[in-house]
């Protein structure tokens, strides 16, 4: 029996499907996106390797920002440590413990939104599970993807993980206070990004010294300005009165 060449076994009946396998996730993500738009909140999917400094950047964001109402969902395999750190930094947070899953999906985010009110927020950060592959595959409904890349990770990560960087709207090169101790060529990172990201955007930051955090805040302000808020009088401030699966 011919199983793989596609020529077709005469005894078998082909059924054409041509459907995105992750269509279910994409539908849920679109639903989340509608929630974010209705609430007028900028949702950021923050991704990066374990130890890239994702939580530290959010802590620094809380320290340096003025007047923004922030909240965060923190995805973690087994603990709620990141969410606890963010709470301590003044960012209301909920942990999403994924168990064995290496990424957040749209449904997990939706469930967490039931516990974390987003009305009245300016920015919701979704700190994804530390991983440079899987999180890029799942749309969560975010307005933008931000990838944290630590200076200690080397110059070739964008070429090794093209799926992640292709989907990034911004790359934060983190821990730049360590640059004097490393033989890292920042121009080589820019070059690698230009071959993985169609519209490369890189901001150099140090959560420790605060360097570059103002540029990051400016980028966030620019993205917030792009949010189209619902027309005044649109009655959808109550949360969840429309139809969807609440299992």
């Amino acid at each position: 029996m011919c199983e793989s060449c596609g020529c077709g076994d005469p005894d078998l009946v082909p059924v054409d499907v041509h459907d995105n396998i992750l269509a279910g996730n994409d539908l849920q993500a679109q639903h989340n996106r509608e929630h974010f738009v209705e609430a007028g909140v900028l949702a950021i999917n923050l991704m990066g390797s374990p130890g890239a400094g994702k939580t530290a950047i959010l802590e620094a964001t809380a320290r340096h920002q003025r007047g923004l109402r922030l909240a965060a969902l923190a995805g973690d395999l087994a603990t709620d440590r990141d969410a606890a750190r963010l709470e301590k930094a003044g960012i209301p947070s909920r942990a999403i413990t994924t168990g064995n899953a290496c990424h957040l999906d749209a449904k997990m985010v939706h469930h967490a939104l039931h516990e974390l009110p987003i009305n009245g927020l300016d920015i919701l950060f979704v700190e994804n599970v530390g991983n440079l592959v899987c999180p890029a595959v799942y749309d969560l409904g975010q307005a933008a993807n931000v990838v944290a890349l630590a200076v200690t990770e080397g110059e070739d990560k964008p070429l090794k993980y093209p799926t992640m960087f292709r989907k990034a709207d911004l790359v934060l090169l983190t821990k730049i206070d360590l640059l004097p101790h490393l033989e890292l060529d920042v121009e080589a990172i820019r070059d690698a990004l230009s071959r993985a990201m169609p519209e490369p955007r890189l901001i150099l930051v140090s959560a420790k010294t605060g360097e570059g955090v103002d540029q990051w805040l400016a980028w966030l302000a620019e993205r917030r300005a792009r949010i189209t808020r619902p027309p005044v009088g649109h009655d959808h401030g109550h949360g969840h009165h429309h139809h969807h699966d609440h299992t």
Partner: peptide, 16 residues
């Protein structure tokens, strides 16, 4: 612009 190469598609099934 990425024209193709990001698909995760179920194309067809063959049934007996």
């Amino acid at each position: 612009r990425l024209e193709s190469g990001d698909e995760i598609m179920l194309q067809r099934i063959e049934l007996e």
